[in-house]
Structures are given as C-alpha cells and as structure tokens.
Design a protein around this nucleic acid. Structure first.
Length: 826
RNA sequence: GCGCGAUUAGCUCAGUGGUAGAGCAUUCCCUUGACAUGGGAAAGGCCGAAGGUUCGAUCCCUUCAUCGCGCACCA
C-alpha cells in the first residue's frame, strides 16, 4: 500500500473528486444526520455527544454581480467549519446556500459595464435592461456556485435560493402588505438623500459622511448676517431662523425683513427655532427646506408661518431657476450650472455687489456622500416608501404579530437585550444598541430597475406631471417609468398589492425595494414561511455569520422583520467576522493590486491551506490578515498531515490490525465502560492491547486535546481550536509520538522503553511482518498511532476537509465510510 | 460631538491576576527510511504612558497619548 501513496499531498488531484463524492452521497443534506447517528449508536449505546437536534445556518447570499473574493472564502471557511462540526456531532444539519440579486450594488456594477460599452441605462427600456441584468446575474450565480464547491462548502444545493425566486418575492410582497395594513410602511413626500450620479435615493446607511474643508460664507440678509456653506441654495430660502432666546435677534422674530439678493429685492420672514445654535457663526441661518434636511424639519415645525420648500436644484445637481424666475437675468445666468460652479460664480458676484461680509476659508465640516461613487448627496424632496422604525403599529387595523404594540426597533432591541439573540463578539452588541437608539425611518424606495418592484399602485385624477427640466427641454435622459418624481402630485389613490385593483388608470410604482428590505426577510423566506416543512424544523436558525460591516444593513433588519413577521427571532447567534486584509493590514482592492484571488491560491496551494490560513491567527470579529506566505505555511501543514498519515498507514500491519475493527471495538469498549457517565474516553482498548502508563498518558492527552478543541468550537473560538490542532498534530503527534513509536513498530523495543533515535542502523534491522516476541507491543504502538491519527483527522476535518478526507479514504476500512459523516470523537 | 476597538518579538497576530506565546523572517547545524512543503537548536519583548486596586497587574479600574472603525440633521 505504501508505494501507492505519493510523498507529497497534491491538493488538486483530490479536491474535485472528493467534493463530488460528498455531494453525490447526500452528505450535505440534513437527512445525512440519520446515518451518522446510526453508526455512532452502533458503537456507543449512549452517545452523549450526539443529538438529533436541528442545526441550521442560512448562508449570507453572495452578490450575484461578480466572482467570489477572499472575503467570501473566509466566510465560507467559518460557516463550513461550523456546519461540518455540527454534522459530525450528529445534529440534523442544514446549510442553505443562496445568491443575492443585490439591487443597487448590482445596478452600479452593471452601470459601469454599460458605461464601458458606451451605453447608458437611462436610454434602455426597462424590460430590456432588466432582462440584461438578469442574464448577467445568472451567469455570475453559476460561477459562484462552482466557486463555492471549490471552496468545499458543504451546503445543501437542493435547497438553494435566489433572492428573486418567485416564492421569495411572494413572501416579500406579503410582508410589505402586512406592514402597510399595520401602518408600519407609509408613503411620504419628504427630503431624501439623492445621488445625482446614480439617480436614486439612498437610505441613511448608504451615505458616508466625509470631512471636507469648504468656505463658510457670511452673507448679508438685510439687517442680519448669516453663515452658510451652501451659497447656491440661497435661491431656495424661505425664511431666516434664529434661536428664540437670542437677544440680538429677538425683536426680529416673526417679522419680515427686506433683503437684497442676486435676484433683486425680496422679503423674507424671521423665525425662532431652538435648533439654531446661537454660538455658531452669527447665530442666524437661512432656511432652505428643499435642499437641507435640517431646514426641511424646521419648515415642518413652522409650516403655518413660512412658505413651503422652493426647489432650485434639479436631479442632476444643476441649478434650476428659470421656471420660477423666467424673466430674471441673474436666474438665467446661474441656471443649468452645476452646484459648485454656481457657488463659485455667486461668490464672485456677491462680493462685487457687496452682499458678502466675509469668507472663512478654513471651515471644516462633514458632508454626506454616496457610499458607492463618493459624490456629494443632494437632498431633494421626493415621495418614497418608508418603514416606520420607532413607532408602534397604528391602533385599530393592527393585524401583526407584534405584541404589545411595540415598534420594530423595540422588539429587536429587546431580543438582544434579553439575550435571546447573542451577538459575538459581544462588543458588537453595544454598537448594535447604539445604532438602534438613533434609528430613523427607513426609505425603501429606489429609482432603479434592478430589484423587486414595489407592489403599489396609484391612480390619479390629474395626469402625472412631467418632470420639470431645463428650458431646452429634457435632455432625453429621463425614462419615465424609472422615476417616481412625477407621481406624488398626481397620486390620489394608493393601492398595495401584487396586482392592480379593478378599474382603469392604475399605474404601478416604478421604484424597486431597497435590496435590504427583501434580504431582511431571508431566513424565514428561504425556509418557506409560514407552512414550509423546513421552516417548522429549522426556524429559528442557529447561527448567522456575516461580516460586521453589514450588522446594520442586514442583521438588524433581519431581526426586526423576522420578529415582526414570524413572531420569532430569525437566529440565535450572530457571529460577526472581520474583513480580510493583506499582511500590511491594508484593505484589499483592485486598485492597490493587493487582492488575493481565493480560487487562484486554492489552485496553487489547496483549498485547505487557504481556509486554514484565513481561520487561524485572528480572534473573532477582528480583521484577518492573509498573505501567500501564510497560505504556504498551511499548505505545508496539509502535507504534514498527509505524510504523518502515510507513515502510519505504511506501518499498520494489514494481517494484524484491521483499522476499522480496532477503532470500532475501542469505541464499543468505551461505550460499555463509560456507559452512564456520559463521557467517552480514548484509553479503553481491546483485550489484546497492553497499554503502559506512558501509552495511557498519550491517549489521555489526545482526549484532553479533543475536548479542548470541542470547547473552543462551542465558543466560536475557531482560531484557538485551529491552533490547538495545528500544534498537537505537528509538534506532539508527528514530532514526538510518531518518533517514539518508531522502534516499537519494529518489534524490538520492549514497551515503555524511551525511544532512541536509531543511530546505528545495522543493529536495528527492519522488522516488517512482525516479530513474534514483540507482537503485542507492536500492536499497541499501531493502535496508539491509529487512534491519534483518526481522532486528529476527525477534529481537523472541519478546518481542512479535503486532505483529511483524502487520507481517510486511504484507510482501508471494512466498511467504506466518509470522514464527513463520521462522528465527532468526544 | 457621541460610541466601539487597538497598542505584546523585526513583521502579522494570539493569550493569561502569579517565570511571556505562535507563524513568518533571522542565525547555526542536519541530504537520519513518513515528510527538505522536513528535523534539531539559537537569538529576539520594561506586553503604549502615568496613576490606582492587589501579596502580586501585560491582564482589572481611572486618566492620557497614538492609530483604526462606527454613528451623527453643527448651518
């Protein structure tokens, strides 16, 4: 047999066929637990470590807009590790894979692709564009499935889901409908984050605040001077606000003041609002409700006193003035300019006209930008759908399962506070709470094509307004069905439902859902809520393990929507992992050229090496660092496993020891000996094996190591479990135990004699085939090596599934088994 | 502004209320019958700073410094 085993472990020779073997065997399905349980039971009548309880992980569905990156590989390694461990424990284990259409993210990726091709999404009819992106994602999805297999993901492919599957959409629609009935979603026309590049609104989470240095202008407004950065929005001013108790301005509050602007003389009202900080600037601010969220709120508070919002910037971030001031030459001058362009022009003009007091050019503040393109977000007023986060369902028509009329936020906070949902590492619980505290209503409308279209219908008595454009007319850019601007003013009736109600004139909302609205329902949607068998068996799921960066985007929403819809938490444990960085702690990016393609390195060094390198050396929740050197190190470890196994295999006497019998019999012995105590030990043996005290110590150590690994795994301390195994296997098993057993395997060394390195070969001739006198000790040595090896292989399997299975397949069992469905040793 | 982390060997990181750990890198030795993708040895640290609690602190507490991250309606 020894001659058949090559000296080096060549991962690529084994991985594909092993994966096929696993997949074909049905080992990835929860039903495989039965056979594990049965085998384990036959060996151990009281299998304390085995259960038939369900264990379920829903895979965070990778975005179907590209290939898997190293971060996915990391996540897969962690999940697969957990899944394989629980499967071996005999849990009825389900790992449900999926892929995400990833609405806006994919739209952005596809926009770039179109751009490269010289095309523009706004010029492609909706259905056509949708079909194109559909094909694009289906391609990517196929690629990803292959990559997940390559990474060894032992997920149940028969249950795979896509976020645009009809049953998922049905669930999402039902949730939206229920929320609507409960008054937890509503449509409102208010100020939103608008990306002028992507031509869509963004949720508060999708904007990034960045520090910027901008000029702070002190401008004259009649009797007052006020400070502003956004000079260009002054055309949209509807009031001047001061603090109600500010002595400087007290006498002006409630009065109209006459001001001179670039457009000429006009009047504006002064209001008192305590949101104004008297310490800042001059203590007086302009109120521009159409282009500033604060000012919008301020207007809401003073709706009776001051005029409504005056929009002066269009959807592309250009000044839009002539429709309001058709005959004003100044309006014509700035009209059509980009915001910054207009600001600079106005600065100059105002200085010339003496309207500017001073400019503070050192002013540092933070501005909202689009998290994808980095462009400054332009606040605009648009009708959108919102999820009510902090207020309870409206009384009366309340049909939801939320008890005690609590808000979505409160039910989620409570679940975490009570410990029903545990977040690991714990520090993220604090971060979670902090975020939840500041939560505001969630805009779920997006003006893109790619996504789940909002099931809302409007009927108007007035025909929808055209979008107001520049004087030259609209630059043919606007594809009406893609935008919702037109609707609000014409909406007189709203209907929520997948299909339009009876009657004429109903138009569907052109917008799609924020992708997180639908993926927030992923756990129960994938399991077939409410009647699915899987839902009943596996919900609440056990572990949700995404990157910490989507704690708010996704995890928080899943908790809220899961609780809302099913009345139960969606998962018991949130296990957050970090972002993979290179060895200099740099974030990986294509532009830096430091990306490591997981599949590429897996081809070179083996999937096991990549997985182990990602899992080892980083505490949970921290960002792992990875380098080719590190992967090489674990490639060497895989080779070590291979060669230590090779040695053991070469030294097992085929006539004397049949591995599976040794194994099974020792397990059975234990079962008998330890029955009732609920603990199995590895030191019990067949009657024909005589263990010395030192031998027993080796086995005790093995057992202690196995228990330690198990403890670490149960506490999600994968790095510690991995390190323990690495050290045990290499520096205890290979370096010490094997060396110690070498002389005994030759049948000449009496038991208990400390091993000596065979310095003089001629004095210790090879004794293969067995020397009668030393037979028992030789058998004992084989037994010990065999036990240490098989136990280690089992423990290592969740970390390095391929090499361990490859070795396992070399063990000539009487009954052919697979390591993936073997039972956990302790 | 509010919040959360980090600071340990040259590098990347673990870890513990009681003589400080790994991998890689470095130096030296070993073509030994499982493996040179190997083996043996060596060197390397006031565990960010200052206080406090303690018999004892790298670890717990406070403050500070530096770095990172998250949240945020400061015009």
């Amino acid at each position: 047999m020894s001659k058949e085993i090559p000296k080096q472990y060549n991962a690529s020779e084994h991985e594909d066929s092993i994966y096929k073997m696993w997949e074909a065997s049905g080992a990835f399905t929860p039903e495989a637990a039965k056979s594990i349980g049965r085998i384990a039971k036959s060996r151990n009548p009281k299998p304390s470590a085995l259960s038939s309880k369900p264990f379920c992980i829903i895979m965070p569905p990778p975005n179907a807009n590209g290939a898997l990156h190293i971060g996915h590989a990391f996540e897969v390694a962690l999940h697969d590790l957990l899944v394989r461990y629980h499967r071996m424990r005999g849990d009825k284990t389900l790992w449900l894979p999926g892929a995400d259409h990833a609405g806006f993210e994919t739209q952005v990726v596809y926009d770039k692709k179109l751009e490269k091709e010289g095309r523009n999404r706004f010029k492609i009819p909706r259905e056509e564009l949708w079909q194109e992106i559909w094909n694009f994602t289906q391609e990517n999805k196929k690629t990803m499935e292959g990559q997940l297999r390559k990474l060894g993901a032992s997920c149940d492919w028969s249950r795979e889901k896509f976020t645009l599957d009809p049953d998922i959409i049905k669930t999402v629609y039902a949730t939206f409908n229920q929320l609507y009935v409960d008054g937890l979603v509503y449509r409102d026309n208010r100020i939103v984050n608008w990306c002028t590049k992507h031509q869509t609104t963004l949720s508060d989470l999708e904007i990034k605040h960045v520090e910027r240095k901008d000029p702070l202008y002190y401008i004259k407004y009649g009797p007052v001077t006020l400070a502003t950065v956004r000079l260009e929005t002054k055309f949209g001013d509807t009031a001047v606000a001061v603090h109600p108790k500010d002595k400087r301005y007290k006498n002006l509050i409630g009065k109209e003041i006459e001001i001179k602007t670039l457009l000429g003389l006009t009047k504006i009202k002064v209001i008192g609002d305590k949101a104004v900080d008297p310490e800042f600037g001059t203590g007086a601010v302009k109120v521009t409700p159409a282009h500033d969220p604060n000012d919008f709120e301020m207007w809401k508070r003073h709706e009776q006193e001051i005029p409504g919002p005056k929009s002066v910037i269009d959807q592309y971030g250009r000044m839009e003035l002539v429709s309001r001031w058709p005959d004003n030459p100044a309006a014509k001058k700035y009209h059509g300019m980009k915001v910054l362009e207009a600001r600079n022009a106005m600065e100059k003009d105002m200085q010339e006209q003496g309207l500017m007091n001073k400019i503070d050019s050192e002013y540092v503040h933070s501005v909202a930008t689009c998290y994808k393109c980095g462009n400054i977000v332009e606040p605009r007023i648009l009708p959108q759908w919102y999820v009510r986060m902090t207020a309870p369902p409206s009384a009366g028509n309340h049909k939801s399962q939320i008890t005690n009329h609590k808000s979505l936020r409160d039910i989620a906070v409570e679940a975490v506070r009570k410990g029903e949902i545990k977040i690991i590492p714990k520090r993220f619980e604090k971060i979670f709470m902090h975020w939840m505290k500041n939560l505001r209503d969630w805009n779920i409308s997006r003006q893109i094509v790619w996504g789940i279209r909002i099931p809302a219908w409007y009927r108007s008595t007035v025909p929808p307004l055209r979008v107001r454009g520049s004087e030259e007319g609209l630059r043919d850019v606007h594809n009406p069905p893609q935008s919702s601007h037109a609707f609000w003013e014409g909406e007189t009736e709203i209907y929520v439902g997948a299909k339009p109600p009876k009657g004429e004139g109903w138009i569907q909302d052109p917008d799609v859902f924020d992708t997180w609205f639908s993926s927030g329902q992923w756990p129960f949607a994938t399991l077939g809520y409410p009647h699915g068998k899987d839902f009943k068996e596996f919900y609440p799921t056990d572990v949700m393990g995404p990157a910490y960066e989507i704690l708010f985007f996704w995890v928080a929403r899943m908790i809220m929507l899961g609780l809302y819809r099913t009345g139960k938490i969606p998962f018991k444990t949130v296990f957050l992992h970090g972002l993979v960085r290179d060895k200099d702690r740099q974030k990986m990016s294509k532009s830096k050229g430091n990306v490591i393609d997981p599949l590429g390195v897996a081809d070179l060094y083996g999937t096991d090496a990549v997985r182990m390198a990602l899992v080892s050396g980083t505490a949970p929740g921290n960002d792992p660092t990875i380098s080719e050197e590190k992967i090489k190190g674990y490639r060497n470890f895989a080779n070590k496993i291979w060669n230590a196994s090779r040695f053991v295999l070469m030294n097992l006497d085929p006539l004397f020891v049949i591995p599976s019998e040794v194994e099974e019999s020792h397990m059975m012995k234990h079962g008998k000996r330890m029955a009732g105590q609920g603990v199995r030990s590895l030191t019990g043996v067949r009657d024909d094996i005589v263990l010395s005290a030192a031998d027993k110590k080796i086995l005790k150590e093995l057992e202690a190591m196995a228990k330690k690994v198990t403890r670490h795994l149960d506490k999600f301390e994968f790095h510690l479990a991995g390190e323990t195994l690495y050290h045990y296997f290499w520096h205890t098993f290979a370096d010490k135990i094997i060396e110690q057993m070498k002389p005994r395997l030759q049948g000449e060394t009496p038991p208990n004699l400390p091993s000596e390195r065979g310095g003089n070969e001629s004095l210790s001739p090879p004794a293969r085939g067995g020397v009668r006198g030393g037979g028992s000790d030789r058998l004992t040595a084989q037994y010990i090596l065999y036990t240490c090896l098989t136990t280690s292989l089992k423990l290592l399997h969740p970390f390095m599934p391929f090499v361990t299975e490859a070795v396992w397949q070399q063990l000539q069992h009487k009954k052919k088994t697979m390591l993936i469905t073997e039972s956990w040793p302790v």
